[in-house]
């Protein structure tokens, strides 16, 4: 089973990359773009058929390594198809 971890900077943490990209977009004629923030996607194959069990394992991976809770929030979702 494949699960996707979406990692985002927490609200309130300044995203300097996002700001730089937003400025570049403005230079390309997308000056109307609102807030823009950069995150990370990690896709991981976990053995087994139970979504709940797989989520629990990926949650544990996030707590132990994938996410730094001081800076980041995350969400886990199954990859369909």
């Amino acid at each position: 089973m494949r699960l996707r971890v979406l990692i985002r900077l927490k609200p309130g943490i300044m995203d300097v990359q996002g700001t730089a990209i937003q400025r570049a977009l403005a230079g390309l004629g997308f000056g109307d773009v609102g807030d823009l923030r950069v995150g990370k996607v990690i896709e991981v194959d976990v053995p087994g058929d139970s979504v709940d069990a797989a989520r629990r394992r990926v949650d544990e991976m996030c707590r132990k390594l994938l996410v730094n809770p001081i800076l980041e929030d995350y969400a886990v979702e199954p990859v369909v198809g």
Partner: peptide, 16 residues
């Protein structure tokens, strides 16, 4: 910081 031996975290320089 990543190991938890010190508090807080280090991130991308503000100036990039």
């Amino acid at each position: 910081c990543e190991s938890g031996l010190l508090p807080g975290a280090l991130m991308r320089n503000e100036c990039l």
